[in-house]
Every structure is written in structure tokens, then in C-alpha cells.
Amino acid sequence: MNRTLATAIGVALLVALAGCAGLAGSTGDADVGANENAGDDPALDRSIDVTADGEAAAEPDRATVRVAVTATGDDSAAVRDELAAGDEELRAALTEWGIDEDDIRTDRYDVRESHETRDDPERTEYEGVHSYAVTIDDVDAVGEVIDVSVDAGADEVQRIEFGLTDEREQEVRETAIENAMSNADSDAAVLADSSGLEITGAYRVSTADTGVTPYRVSDAEMLAASGDDGDAATGVETGDVSVEVSVNVVYGAEEA
């Protein structure tokens, strides 16, 4: 091998070794950094784990009125036609009153043979129902909406559900969370005192799903409230809507 070739091979080996050395140094630095980060969140020597509920209530600012148009007949097509005519009249009356079309939703649509004639080979009768959920943000106008619906051909006023708008529900939920945290703090204090510990602070906090309980008024309750005249548009009372939240809190603790 001549001197020029030997020199070239030596330089190539030096470059390759230098590259390997640099790679090994980068990997080591990365490992050190990972170990340092892992030490930033050490495990607690002592902890108290508490799950607590919190509830808050508010007056409703939204209502959903469920009404239905019904039809019966010897022919299923005739029943469907009657329901279609009722649908057109009801929607027209409600939108004219001021309800947005998007707030009038079909809740149920069904056409089937009547139970009374199902086992009678000599007679066939069909019955149909088209139920609607009508949502309004003015809870004081529930009676008017019922009046408009009945005057437009609704045969049933099935239920009224009083609830909260999204914005109001979020506000009430925040209050429920505050109440849940207060209950958790109280429970943790009792547990710590009973265990000879002292709480150093909240270490980890999480919430579970929110439960919202609307205020519902059934058909029977509306009839009872309306008196002998059967006017379901009067005497409809509202009630508070409740929001419940569950929190889980892990508290750091030390010997008292």
C-alpha cells in the first residue's frame, strides 16, 4: 500500500470515530435531562384521597313544551295525510307566534295498527302520533305556547320541562364545583385530624360528569293545576333546576 492511500484511510477512520463520539455524547445528555424532569413530580409520601359531591340550583331560563298531533282512520295513508296536515298547521302557527323553526323538533313519529283492532279480522283501524319538542327561552310564555299549539290542532300536551341555557348552566356548574371542593376540604380535614396528619395542600384535582336535573311538569300535573275547566295554559308553575358535580381531590399530607 502506498503512502497516499494509507493517509486517506487514516483520515476516514478519524472522521468516523469522531462522529460516533459526538452521537454518544448527545444520547447521554438526553438521558440526563429525562432523569431531571422525572424528579420534578415526586410521589407523595402521605396523601388523602377524597371524592365529594357539590350541588347548586337556579331558576330556569329555558322551557321545552312537548305536544302531539294524533290521528286515527281505517287507512294508514289517510292517517299519514292527516298528520302531515296537522304538522303544517302547527308549525305555521308556532313560527307566526315567534318561535324559530329550528326550535320545533320532531320528538316521535309513529303510525301503526290500533291495539283494539289488531285481533279483529273484520275491522282494521290505524292510529298515528307526531310528537314535538318546542323550545323557548321565555319561561313565562309557556302558557301562550300551549294555547297556540292547542288552537293549531295539537291533541296532547304531554310534558313541560324547565331547564337552563348553556351559559346559565355553566354558571351554576361553577358554583356546584365550588361547593364540591368545599365539601372535599371539610372531609379531608376530618380524615387528617383522625389520622394524626396535617394537610399540605391539594396535589391533584379532577371532576366527574355533570348531572343536570330539570324541573318537569307532567300532563296529569298540568290538568290538576288548571282546575275543572281543563285549561292547561294556566296554573303552570316552575321550579328550580339543579346541577350536581363530583370531584376527586388528592391532598398532600404530613405528620402533625
Rank of each mutant, 00 (worst) to 15 (best):
D228H: 04
T200S: 13
S226T: 03
T200L: 05
R204T: 14
V243P: 01
M222D: 00
T207Q: 13
Y203R: 12
S242C: 15
G201Q: 12
V241H: 03
D228S: 12
S242T: 13
G227D: 10
D229M: 04
V236R: 01
T210G: 04
D228F: 12
T213D: 15
V243Q: 00
G235K: 02
T213L: 15
D219A: 14
T238R: 03
A220W: 08
V236D: 00
Y203N: 08
S206Q: 10
S242Q: 11
P214V: 08
D219V: 10
V212M: 05
V243L: 05
G235R: 00
V217C: 01
V212F: 09
A202W: 05
S242H: 07
T207G: 04
V236N: 05
S206E: 13
M222W: 01
G227Y: 09
S218L: 14
T200G: 01
A233I: 08
A225W: 06
S206L: 12
E221F: 09
V245A: 06
D229L: 05
G235W: 03
E221V: 08
E237K: 08
E221M: 08
A220L: 11
T238A: 09
G235M: 03
D219P: 06
V243D: 00
G239L: 02
T210N: 08
E237Y: 07
T213A: 15
D231W: 02
T238H: 10
A224Y: 13
P214W: 02
E221I: 07
D240Q: 12
T213R: 15
A233Q: 04
V205I: 13
G201V: 11
E221A: 11
R216K: 13
E244P: 00
T207C: 07
T210H: 08
E198D: 13
D231V: 03
L223H: 04
Y215C: 13
Y203H: 10
V243H: 01
